[in-house]
Design a binder for these strands. Structure first.
Lengths: 252, 252
DNA sequence: TCAAAAATGATTAATATTGATCAAAAGTAA
DNA sequence: TTACTTTTGATCAATATTAATCATTTTTGA
């Protein structure tokens, strides 16, 4: 294997793993650590990765560091929910991705799929922009800097111009009595638009939000085709949701 | 775990918690306090966090990790053109910003203004997202990953939904005979939409493009209210443009 | 085919990182 | 202020990583 081939593989491996040691890479590429070190040095000089002691880290897309999610400390629960949610996605799907943190975690698990993503979330954009198999459609409108997402009337209009196979959304509260609730009107209008224009709606929701109500009621339980939550969810509350006809999937 | 990884996690943790003690960080990162102190010292020196006694605080405006600085070859000429162009912008303006490299350079000079920016350029978005006095409207549509910009029909529709005081655009070629020309159809449709929906159109164009034609003819000279170029421009060619009624401003 | 050049892997000396220890400095409370 | 506690920075030993060197293999070009 020559340098160019290794370079390609190293960058691909790093893209998945975020960071790898010299020895891990040596094993993956079936080359000696000495070769890997030489390679890493050369590639780092090109600015395509960050050399660390003992290995290398993925270089973030420099243009987008401004709005990438600083995903250092992810709760394993959210990851499990996200992974389960990603398993609903098939090659060829067109999907809406909401701007919540759990939905964002899906990115990791979507990178191998060939799909089209329609999103208003800048962190998702930043995360997926370098994945060749994923086409991105960015929802336009007013930028909410704090949330790093696009909101507003124009954004809703934009969403209305599309139909997706699946929508992956988050909520602030979910209960059998009040359905889906949110903290903010702005966000809920976007989510409502996603729901309206998607074939299936999959709700990602950690256990803490189940049975809790926030103040903007924006959708009925019946709008949801599946709820993905973690196994720490309160059984009684889950039962209540299921008795209202909700399909509940437990992750983890 | 190496320094780079810890640095990333420390910054991520601080971003959430605002401030943390050395011991809290030591626990989160599973490293010794001595290591954390060394790390905090190093990171503080980079200006990415504030060292406190016993810990560290989040830095509100972390030094931009050299994107605008490093982004390619910033010829002083382009900067001069960009600065001149930015001087056309007044507080309260709503402006369209195109996705060319010269237009991008304007960002630096816009940061002190109170304006609304409508753009399809991700680098511009990234550059201005942290400027409180600037509101951003992102144009939605298909993402062109190579150009880091949004294009397509939806994008044009989106632009048609707005009217701006001024549009700042780039071209690939400009001549008295053929007006404005571009390499790519996709980009030119966006630029055309900007021109159609702006009160004034200001064209940023380094000398090398004057008198040169590209293959997509997309606008007449008369659509332009001012051309800003550098003083190295060929005088005869400038004259020819001026005789066609174009207002030419020399930067630098 | 052969010789020259380049790449690879192994070895080793040099360097960097880490955690522990401890004296000095900084902060805190009376 | 003074006494007390906490935090720090320096130093050191142990460990891990690296760069440099060299022999071997592979590739290249005549």
């Amino acid at each position: 294997m020559n340098f160019q081939e290794r370079k390609k593989k190293i960058l691909a491996a790093l893209d998945e793993a975020e960071s790898l040691t010299v020895f891990e890479l040596a094993e993956i590429l079936e080359a000696s650590p000495a070769t890997i070190r030489r390679d890493l040095g050369d590639i780092a000089e090109e600015g395509l990765l960050i050399r660390t002691h003992g290995g290398a880290m993925k270089m973030e897309n420099p243009v987008l560091t401004g709005f990438s999610e600083k995903s250092g400390v992810n709760s394993p629960t959210k990851e499990q929910i996200a992974e389960k949610a990603a398993s609903f996605v098939q090659d060829g799907d067109i999907i809406f991705l909401d701007c919540g943190s759990t939905v964002f975690q899906m990115c990791r698990f979507l990178k191998k799929k060939s799909i089209r993503v329609i999103t208003n979330s800048l962190p998702i954009l930043a995360e997926l922009i370098d994945v060749p198999s994923i086409q991105i459609n960015l929802i336009g409108g007013e930028l909410n800097k704090a949330r790093k997402a696009v909101h507003g009337d124009k954004a809703v209009q934009h969403i209305n111009g599309y139909h997706a196979h699946k929508a992956f959304i988050g909520v602030d509260g979910l209960s059998a009595e009040n359905g889906l609730t949110a903290h903010s009107e702005h966000e809920s209008t976007i989510t409502t638009a996603f729901i309206r224009n998607a074939g299936q709606v999959i709700l990602l929701c950690d256990a803490s939000k189940i049975g809790r109500d926030s103040y903007v009621k924006f959708a009925e339980l019946s709008a949801i085709h599946a709820l993905i939550t973690d196994s720490s969810a309160d059984e009684a509350k889950i039962k209540a949701l299921q008795q209202n006809g909700l399909n509940v999937e437990l992750a983890g």
